[in-house]
């Protein structure tokens, strides 16, 4: 039964991936403008248009743009499956190489921030949810709400001006000061990543906090908690043995799923701190209209989301004994 559920899920994700690739195809071919322009870039396109237009026609031939839509689609699928995503006319490199290099830097921010905030959010959420209306809750909840409603790049700008400009504690952005090696370099990178990491931790914590809090409140109202209380168990025992056990399962899956969606979330923070990860890559690609790069980034982020969904599904199946076949939980 479990195997069937897993297989069904895998099929669903494969379908989603296929649809995303199709969206990418439709974008290049049906968005306003010549597809060639999307492939080689505006500057090159207009240069060629003026100097020798027949090169453009040759390219049209080469990319198969004269063929029928179906044939083009088939070609597109083939090149995608062979991981041939094209060439970035800005970086003069295959887009995949650029992306993988940038991804490393994004993960350096992303993974620690998700882990730290998962613990922090859980801890604070449990504390507030277990005694709603307590002094702790009254102080923490509005603060978390405020953090939650302020866009991360706004917090970033504020923090950047305060800590880097006014106080001079941290650099203005970027990733290293350059010219260092070994331990010095590592420390230097950590110094540069401190502020962006902090902001990601804070904003994700506020998100995790509300999930944990509401789930703890909900569980506290269940009958079995009342039973446990009336058996004379201490608060601590009820919390750790009954409440936590039930609250952690949905929490872990939400945090896992967050991993994928956060790739997009870190984007704006990266832009503010000029951290050379995926975010700044996408922002720059948008500015210079580097479409192959944009398409791959979109595909790549989608794959991240799908992978984190799969991880969270597997965890759910592994942890929860009650999982039913075919129960739809896709987020």
């Amino acid at each position: 039964m479990k195997a069937a559920a897993i297989l069904k899920r895998i099929f669903e994700y494969a379908l989603i991936l296929f649809i995303i690739i199709t969206i990418n195809f439709l974008l290049t071919h049906y968005m306003p403008g010549d597809p060639i322009l999307h492939l080689i870039g505006e500057e090159e396109y207009y240069n060629l248009m003026a100097s020798n237009p027949q090169v453009i026609e040759e390219m049209r031939e080469k990319y198969g743009l004269n063929k029928s839509t179906l044939e083009q689609y088939w070609i597109y699928l083939k090149t995608t499956v062979t991981l041939n995503f094209g060439y970035s006319y800005i970086y003069k490199q295959p887009v995949l190489d650029v992306l993988l290099f940038r991804m490393k830097w994004t993960l350096m921010l992303l993974i620690p921030s998700v882990i730290i905030s998962a613990f922090l959010g859980a801890f604070l959420g449990i504390k507030a949810g277990w005694k709603p209306g307590s002094q702790f809750d009254i102080l923490t909840t509005p603060l978390m709400l405020l953090i939650n409603t302020t866009p991360t790049y706004c917090i970033s700008i504020f923090v950047l001006t305060f800590f880097s400009f006014t106080m001079g504690f941290f650099p203005f952005g970027g990733m290293t000061s350059g010219g260092l090696s070994g331990l010095d370099k590592a420390l230097d990178i950590m110094w540069h990543m401190f502020l962006p990491l902090m902001i990601l931790v804070i904003s994700k914590t506020s998100y995790d906090y509300f999930i944990m809090k509401s789930s703890v409140i909900e569980i506290s109202e269940e009958d079995y908690i009342l039973t446990a209380m009336s058996k004379g168990l201490s608060d601590r025992d009820v919390l750790s043995k009954h409440v936590l056990k039930n609250a952690l399962l949905p929490y872990i899956t939400v945090v896992c799923m967050q991993l994928g969606f956060s790739v997009a979330g870190t984007m704006l923070v990266e832009v503010v701190f000029s951290w050379k990860g995926m975010g700044t890559l996408i922002q720059r690609s948008v500015q210079v209209k580097d479409f192959p790069m944009l398409q791959l980034s979109f595909l790549f982020i989608s794959v991240c989301v799908i992978i984190s969904n799969i991880i969270s599904d597997l965890l759910y199946i592994a942890i929860d004994p009650r999982i039913k076949e075919g129960e739809s939980r896709a987020q």
Binding site: I16, I20, Q295, F298, S302, V305, A330, Q331
Partner: peptide, 15 residues
């Protein structure tokens, strides 16, 4: 729901 909306919005807006 699975398709990441912010990147898709950005790609759409860029095109």
């Amino acid at each position: 729901l699975v398709i990441p909306s912010l990147p898709l919005t950005i790609v759409l807006a860029a095109y």
